[in-house]
Amino acid sequence: MHIGIAGAGLLGRLAAWALATQGHRVEVFDPAPGPAPLFNGQGAAGFTAAGMLSPVAERESADAALADLGWRSIALWERLSQALHAQAQVHETPDAPLFTRQGSLLVAHGPDLGAARRVLARLDDGTLPSERQPQHLPVDTLHGLEPELHGSSGPLHAWLLPGEAHIDTVRTLTALHATATATGRVQWHWGQTVGSVRPGQLDAMHGTQRFDTVLDVRGTGARPDCAVRGVRGELVWLHAPGVRLSRPVRLLHPRHRVYIVPRPGERILVGASEVESEDRSPMSLRSAVELMAAAHSVLPALAEARIDRLDVNLRPALPDHHPEVHHAPGLLRLNGLYRHGWLLAPALLDQALRDSALAPDGLPG
């Protein structure tokens, strides 16, 4: 089949690779100037993501159904990342895996223990199987797992969320583009904003393009076809030579959540989960100071880290914060993944491609 895809973010690149692997001819349209990250508030929101795959931690604000999809995605990412690493011949930090599964950590300072316990009660409502329940870590055990993680004013309270994972978002998006291109069946149309998507056709800058089937996997660009809004995400990239961190960390705080995630190349990412705003302007001084101070309060070794960049972008959210999957003859829509893009994308797309018979075997790898 001849298939058009509106959007070259995470879903668009995953779909292009999967459909080309099935033998389809694919054309992808996106307003970005090219496949590389921009780090300027524009482009694919998937680049501005720490890549935490945390189904249990997300239960604080998401339901059990989304968490189940997250566990399916973790299993898929484990397989997909190995295939991507091999097929794309990842050159930058080639020995570093794209995907790591060692669990994640929740930590809280002593005065915030009460707030942390309330969060933990929301995470485990009695339906979590024992092997996925948060495990309290004594100070010595935490030190054994992450020697440099400790409170600036006293011991931390900590819990391990077993089975959770994290993924290198930038390298994975780069590998997806390279692997899809290598099939010889994908044509990328950069600098092409899609105005509207209908069954069998999409309206691009150079006129209406017709296909056997069209996939709409745009983010905030899906408006007005989809009632999506932008939710601002902010991310600090730090270069921290010598700082050892193996697992993602969420700092539980009465007012906000801050996450700290290791990346290859001696990088540490520090971010905030969400800001209800469609502002794409650079990060404010207050946000930057709060994020970095919170990270430093549990990882004091960051004191001499250097700031690589302050990154912002908009995550696409629907009114109920749930993704929308819509099938019709000649059209497949997947929109509104909100802040759960990396957690949900493989499971949602795998099922959608199977249900639509576009890729009966689902995602490759």
Rank of each mutant, 00 (worst) to 15 (best):
H91C: 11
G200L: 14
E276M: 12
A317H: 09
S287N: 13
D168I: 02
V261F: 02
L106R: 14
G9Q: 09
G46Q: 03
G70N: 04
G191H: 08
L142M: 07
G265H: 14
R13E: 02
V197L: 03
W77V: 01
R72M: 05
L337I: 10
D350K: 03
H253I: 06
V231M: 02
S104M: 04
V275A: 06
A180I: 08
S73V: 02
A18N: 04
H206Q: 15
D68I: 11
S54L: 15
L145W: 13
D124K: 07
Q87W: 00
G207F: 06
A178H: 14
H256P: 00
V275I: 15
G163Y: 05
V214G: 07
H24L: 09
G195V: 01
H206W: 07
S61T: 15
A36C: 05
A182P: 08
T183V: 08
Q42M: 14
H2I: 02
G151N: 10
R244N: 03
A45P: 03
D212H: 08
L113E: 10
L105S: 03
P241H: 13
R122D: 12
S61L: 13
F47E: 04
L76H: 13
L156V: 09
D125W: 05
S130D: 12
L142A: 04
L363P: 07
L10I: 05
S356H: 04
H109F: 07
G219S: 13
A88M: 11
L123R: 13
G265A: 03
G271T: 04
F47P: 04
T174P: 01
L202E: 11
R122W: 05
G200N: 12
A359Q: 07
P162K: 07
G330P: 04
L358C: 09
V236G: 03
L176V: 06
A294M: 06
A227M: 11
F99H: 03
A96C: 06
G163S: 09
R218T: 09
R117D: 10
G4W: 09
H256K: 04
E58V: 09
L334W: 06
S73G: 12
R223Y: 14
D311A: 15
L176C: 07
A294F: 08
W77H: 14
D225K: 10
H253K: 11
P319T: 10
A240Q: 12
H150N: 06
L161I: 03
V270E: 11
G23M: 04
S284R: 08
S61D: 06
A116D: 01
H206V: 02
G221Q: 14
R354T: 13
W188S: 10
I3N: 08
Q201F: 01
P262K: 12
P94D: 02
P316N: 15
A180D: 02
S152W: 01
R101Q: 14
A158N: 10
R255G: 01
D361P: 00
G110H: 13
R25P: 00
W188Y: 13
L314M: 09
Q133D: 06
H2S: 12
A15W: 05
C226E: 14
V289K: 15
T183W: 02
A359T: 02
A178T: 14
G46P: 05
R339C: 09
F211V: 00
T169Y: 12
H150G: 02
A75M: 08
R13F: 03
Y259A: 07
R132H: 08
G144C: 13
L337G: 15
G271H: 01
R315T: 08
H24E: 10
P199A: 14
G195I: 02
R309E: 13
I268D: 00
